[in-house]
Amino acid sequence: MIAFLVKRVGNAILVMLTVAFFAFLIFRFLGDPVEMMVNESATQVERDELRSRLGLNDGFLVQYLRFVTNAAQGQFGLSWRNQQNVITLIGERFPATFELVIIATILSLAIGIPLGVFTAIGRGRWWAEGLQFSSIVGVSLPSFFVGIILILAFSVSLGWLPGYGRGEVVQLGWWSTGLLTPSGRAAIVLPALSLSLFQITLVMRLVRAEMLEILRADFIKFARARGVKRRALWFRHALKNCLMPVVTLTAMQVGNLIAFALVTETVFQWPGMGMLFMQAVTFVDIPVMAAYLCIVSFIFVTLNTFVDIAYAVIDPRLRAA
């Protein structure tokens, strides 16, 4: 088990080093940092002085190692746009994205799992087949389109929910949360729904397929022979056996959600990391882009590593292995 963990963590570090390498390439070679930073009227002497101060004259490997060392400590330098520390900028935006992604994940599980169970046990009935068919729509619709439709319906036409922004936020230390105020809670509904629609259908289709398979298993038949009622059969015996792939999917998808959040945040003017990144792209703010790349990858890799550990928690057969 420990050897396995060490191997997994080793893999994770290797992946992160590779990602950092690409982030570094962007950082170092996409345009000339000095040209971006200095005033147009700066003299060659001033430019050379800045170049050596930034360490741009050092060898490639030295610069890369310096980049990795700094990145590991959360040092991504200053934003070229507003001279603020990049990590502070991202830190300010991270809670908004995180809350959005968490709510979207909870929604996708809370809606997707029951729907999956119902479409499996109702197979052949019109309502189950109808749901299954309409899930194709959910998988196919692009995220920005769903967002626009939601805004049009619930914000513009019905006026029930706000269509942009994050509402009022409360500051808890460095963390800003919108979940504690009524306007913040109202504001998160539409973007979270828009972000999770794809996940809901994904979870639903996965749970349905798994359930159909598990319901044919011998232990389900034996549980019926013991007198286990249908409800317990579905939601206790069968569902628990379906959860393994759902955990994998969810953990992987949290990474995807953060990436998809870029689109949703833009549509809903949600002040998260995705919007920060979009602004950084517009202004060619390379330190912010490099930092975003590293941080999102870090979340991805960490989640994947935790999935392996979660397996062992759910399935007793893996605990000893």
């Binding site: 034996f222 022979a225 013991r226 286990v228 056996n241 399935d315 007793p316």
Partner: peptide, 25 residues
Amino acid sequence: MASIRGSMVGAIFQDPLTSLNPLFS
């Protein structure tokens, strides 16, 4: 019938490995 199964008639199937739910003690 579900309330009859287990209380009036029990069952033993061929393969004990697959008869038991692996995720419950």
